[in-house]
Design a protein around this nucleic acid. Sequence first.
DNA 1: TCTAAGATGGGT
DNA 2: CCCATCTTAGAA
Length: 199
Amino acid sequence: MPGTRKLPREFYTRSNVLTVARELLGKLLVVPAKDGTRTSGFIVETEAYRGPQDRASHAYGGRRTNRTETMYGIGGTAYVYFVYGMYNQFNVVTNVNDIPHAVLIRALEPVEGIKMMRRRRGQSDHNLTNGPGKLCIAMGIDRKLDRADLTGKEVWLEEGQRVPRSRIVSGPRIGIDYAEDWIDRPWRFWIKNNPFVSR
DNA sequence: TCTAAGATGGGT
DNA sequence: CCCATCTTAGAA
């Protein structure tokens, strides 16, 4: 059984979203199913979104709408939104209140509840959680979890595997071709050679 | 292995 | 009209 320590609030409220995005690698994301079964996976790919200054962020320019309001909450809140007419995306809000930084979780390495993931996905092997939309389906994450407290009982993170700095790689973020000079910032982080990284 | 296209609905 | 995507089909 993997570690059982929930990450504390202070992990999320730190001011450097890039640091948090890197340190999220190897952490265990846990969502209990209705019947109590744990579904979980190690985080193997993340992307940082730096609020007002970052053209790729939903909160660019301080945009504050019903959807983006979640990101203005305290670090350690779940930001779940709907894209492309059929997928949800799971993000971790970072920093203190009113600073809308967040980290998109792009891929997991499945750990617990794999049978349930297969059933939900209708796929198997390396195709269960290797993408931001796929992992939400596999883990049962939808907009009901938007604004959930990550130190609470619906969804949380635990200490997982230690990832040495030398195994972490970075590169440009995916799917943000509209972001002009922010397109090439290497704010996507993943674990080198991990077979569950997206694409 | 790869590329192309369609699905599908909320946000602005 | 735009999207922080995924699947399937068909080519090679």
